[in-house]
């Protein structure tokens, strides 16, 4: 048996190369394949391939991070803490990218002529709150010195924060207006998206989640090596 079953270099390399080829194909197709013209959106509709997958990836990262926090409290093994931490960190970067692509996109389409950069759109608000929670999570980690205690306390905060976020799904739509597809009164995503765009959109989601997986596993392995050398897994 392998002594550290979570480290299999050859398999990681295979996944990494597949993801890189896949994402290159998605990006090339995203910019070159002809898309139907929609009023106002025009060619910015191509941002669909980049902006929306960022959200899917961040949600996947939130799930991975929460799962490993739960497992840490059950088992107490430090690799779970490393996984929860690195999933949160990489996921937060995807969240920042999703926020930026969304802000720039909406500035020049929905809010064109109004000079508005930040609008209290429900999804934008929820995403920024998730980023705030992760910001607090990282600050809390830096205030704890002992790795075992840090692992447990940070996992508790991660799970505690995860119990309050579902309320946002219920509370926010009643308080704030949304222009996103699928929100109340707006057509669902599948009604306004041409089949040719879906052919690139779905592979883009898989590609970006794959990219998350490559970055995440890479950071986990680095942190594990650092922990084995100097007994401190913080990167």
């Amino acid at each position: 048996m392998n002594k550290h079953p979570h480290i299999r270099i050859d398999r990681y390399a295979l996944v990494r190369n597949t993801v890189f080829v896949w994402l290159t194909a998605v990006v090339v197709a995203g910019f070159l394949v002809n898309i139907p013209r929609i009023n106002i959106l025009e060619h910015t509709a191509r941002n669909l391939y980049f902006h929306v997958p960022m959200w899917f990836t961040m949600m996947a990262a939130v799930g991975v991070s929460g799962y490993h926090s739960l497992r840490l409290l059950q088992t107490g093994s430090l690799i779970r803490d490393i996984r929860a931490m690195q999933a949160a960190r990489v996921g937060a970067w995807f969240g920042v990218l999703g926020l930026l692509t969304g802000i720039i996109w909406s500035k020049f389409t929905w809010y064109v002529g109004t000079d508005v950069w930040w609008n209290f759109d429900p999804r934008q608000t929820m995403a920024s709150l998730q980023l705030l929670i992760y910001g607090a999570y990282f600050v809390l980690r830096s205030a704890l010195d002992d790795p075992d205690r840090r692992a447990r306390i940070a996992a508790v905060y991660n799970l505690f924060a995860a119990t309050t976020t579902p309320f946002l799904l219920y509370v926010i739509p009643r308080q704030l207006q949304s222009l996103h597809p699928g929100a109340e009164g707006n057509p669902a995503f599948s009604d306004i998206t041409e089949p040719v765009m879906r052919l690139i959109f779905y592979p883009a989601i898989i590609g970006f989640i794959g990219l998350f997986w490559v970055l995440y596993t890479q950071r986990v392995r680095t942190a594990w090596i650092k922990y084995r050398v100097i007994r401190d897994p913080e990167l």
Binding site: T125, L132, A136, L140, L144, D145, I153, T164, F167, L168
Partner: peptide, 20 residues
Amino acid sequence: ARTTNAGPLLPVLLFPLLFP
């Protein structure tokens, strides 16, 4: 209470959770 310099940490942890 488990952290080293606890003082100003509470608002940072608390406010994002209290939005709803």
